[in-house]
Design a protein around this nucleic acid. Sequence first.
DNA 1: TATATTAGCGTAAAATATACGCATAATATG
DNA 2: CATATTATGCGTATATTTTACGCTAATATA
Lengths: 224, 224
Amino acid sequence: MQQSIQLSVDAVVFGYEAGNISILLIKRKYEPFKGKWAIPGGFVLDDESLEEAVERELKEETGIKINYLEQLYTFGKPNRDPRGRVVSIAYFGLIRPNAFKIYASTDAAQVQWFHIDELPELSFDHKEILDAAIKRLKAKITYEPLGFELLDNKFPFSDLEKLYSTLLGREVDRRNFRKKIIGLNVLDELDEKVSKGSGRPANLFQFNKKRYFHLKKEGIIFEI
Amino acid sequence: MQQSIQLSVDAVVFGYEAGNISILLIKRKYEPFKGKWAIPGGFVLDDESLEEAVERELKEETGIKINYLEQLYTFGKPNRDPRGRVVSIAYFGLIRPNAFKIYASTDAAQVQWFHIDELPELSFDHKEILDAAIKRLKAKITYEPLGFELLDNKFPFSDLEKLYSTLLGREVDRRNFRKKIIGLNVLDELDEKVSKGSGRPANLFQFNKKRYFHLKKEGIIFEI
DNA sequence: TATATTAGCGTAAAATATACGCATAATATG
DNA sequence: CATATTATGCGTATATTTTACGCTAATATA
């Protein structure tokens, strides 16, 4: 038996800044879809794991090092790639956009953050992959503390609230949201304040990952 | 660039009967792991989709036609298969065990249902795949109406209750559970009764898939 | 100093979940 | 055949959680 199926990985990387969710795309340097936008990714090498492949491709094509990475779904329709049968394992990543400088290299002619509502036309079946990733992100923030991966290490509560109301696509009652999150007992309140423009300066908070995993082991669940 | 990676699919198939959750395994006919138990599966053909591959392999190896099938996870560690680099896309399936007669053919020397607590040693990394599937099943029945795929088309309420208490691994208050499920408005109460042994005969119910999808579209969520 | 603006705390009402009592309709048993 | 046993089916009271929303605090700005 001899297959001729090639294996690639692709990564939908989300960033968040000032109330905007954005996605990292590259402009393709070579055919097929030369000059078109696409999700970063590429072929898996024989001796690397799938995660290593994603991280290598991201580094090569965009210069970023991912903060949070998980497998999303494997796309394998026979005709999804004009070059032949290519099955792609899609990943889903989160980073703090201001934490890295993006730059194009190797296969990418250009790298750019796109606002989630202003996406260009995409290559291959990447629109489908991206839609699956958005769906996963929106669902998962309600039962896993993913939001913190998108915020700065220290953040005012309003940032977290704004992130959630943006992702959930609806208003969130400021007071109830605060009570709920504080009640989860996974945030440390710092002795630092930050003031942006007018209004009372806000206290900074920090996500306590260690405490979160400890509580999770005890069966306490995160839920918004 | 020339990869030498092969692509396979594997399926963890769950069945349920008389309060027992079981998993369908095959005994391998050929090396590697000849004579050992494994999850059904095999190599993907060049021109078939991943789902077609799973369904074909299940049919070939065990004789069953799956009731519910979803992609689980892709396993791709470089050394998971002694024959070389094989990446496997694992699926997760549910059937009503009494709906099909299982029989071994092609690659399988034997096919058998195993109780979830009495599993034999497994080939490759199939234990890891199986654990992921069990975790997914247990999590998913709380927010998707998967349970009905494991029950007969018409079932008494106590069957559903027993299924849930088994899967959740805890007692479920019979009266509150009933209230909750009835309140979801996705069951049709039939004018048929069934009596098994002593006790008051039970009314039969049927899951109304159409109504469920209608309600889901309106944003009403299934949750246990 | 008055006003706008964002932050932070608390309380009451509504909705949901939990605990559990009891009638009903069949089979099992002496 | 009377009575116990078993499982079904319905209801109600209480506890818990969610939701709505009022009020004070601390800063910038006019």
